[in-house]
Amino acid sequence: MNETEFSLLNILIAVIGGAIRVGTPFLFVSLGECLTERSGRINLGLEGTLMMGAMTGYGASYLSGSPWLGVMAAGMTGVILGGVHALLCQQQKVNDIAVGIALMLLGTGLAFFLGKPLIQPTAAHLPALHLGSWSDSPVIQAALDINVLFVMGALLAPAMAWFFRYSRWGLYVRTVGESADAARAMGLNVNRVRMYSTMAGGFLAGVGGSFLSLYYPGGWSEGLSSGQGLMAVALVIFARWNPVYCLYASLLFGAAATLGPTLQSIGMTWGYYLFHAAPYVLTLIIMITTSSSTRLLSGMPGQLSNVK
C-alpha cells in the first residue's frame, strides 16, 4: 500500500514536471498573443513564428556555440515576422486573420526550407536549474530540472499584468485595443502601437520556439511543433486576455499533453488515444463553453471583434 502511495506521488510530480516542460512554449506564445490581442489585433501567424524561432535559435546556437545567442536570434526573427504582420495589416482592407494564416504557412515553410542542414547537427542546449538537488529521488530531481526560460516566463506573466494595469504604455495598448477612435482622440498613433505590440508578441513567440529546439525536446526537426502556436491562440481566449491566467492555462495544457505518455508508462494501458487527444479536446471544450451568441466574452478587447 505504501508503494502505491509513493507511485501516486511520483505520478503527480512527474505530471507537474511535464506540465512545466511542455507548457513553456505555450506560455511564451500565449503571452505574446495576449499582448498583440490586447492591442486589438489577432496574429494567427505565431505558429509560423514559433517554427522560425525554433529553427533560427537552433542555427544560431549551433554556429555561435551560445544557446543564449540562439534565444536572442529566435526573438529577433519573431520581431521581424511580427513587423511584417503589422505592416500588412495596417494597409487598407486587409484582414488580419488572413494575413496571419499566410504568415503561418510562410513561417513553417521557410523554417523547413532553411532548416534542412540543421536536422543532423547537435547544438549547445540551454542549461537547467537543478531545483531538485535537495531530494534523493531521481524522479523529483528530474521533474525539478527547470529551465531558466520558464522562470523568466513565469515572472513575465505578472509583470505583463502590471504593465497593462498600471503603466502608461500599458494603458496605450489597452486603449488602442478597446477603441481605436478613443485612442485617436487621445492623439495616439493606433498603427504604431499595434505594430510595437505585434513585434513584441512575435519576439515572445520566437523565444517560445527556441525553447522547443534548444531545451525540450531539443533539436530541430520538421515535426517539432504539434500546433502549439495555434493552440496558444485558443489558450489566450481561455485565459480571458489576462497574462497571469495565461500562465495557469499553459500549465494546464502542458499537463494535458503529458497525461497520455505518463499514464502508459505507469502501466495504465487503456484509452491512450483518448488521453493523447486531451489537449485538443480541452481546446474544443473551451471554445464551446466560452462562446455565446448574445454577448461578447468578458475581458475581450473591443476592437478584436472588428474584422475589417
Binding site: G17, R21, Y216, G223, A257, G260, P261, Q264, I266
Partner: peptide, 12 residues
C-alpha cells in the same frame, strides 16, 4: 514523428 510526445514518454 511527434518529438514532444516522444521526449515526454521517455522522461516518464
Amino acid at each position: 514523428s511527434l518529438p514532444v510526445k516522444e521526449a515526454e514518454a521517455a522522461n516518464s
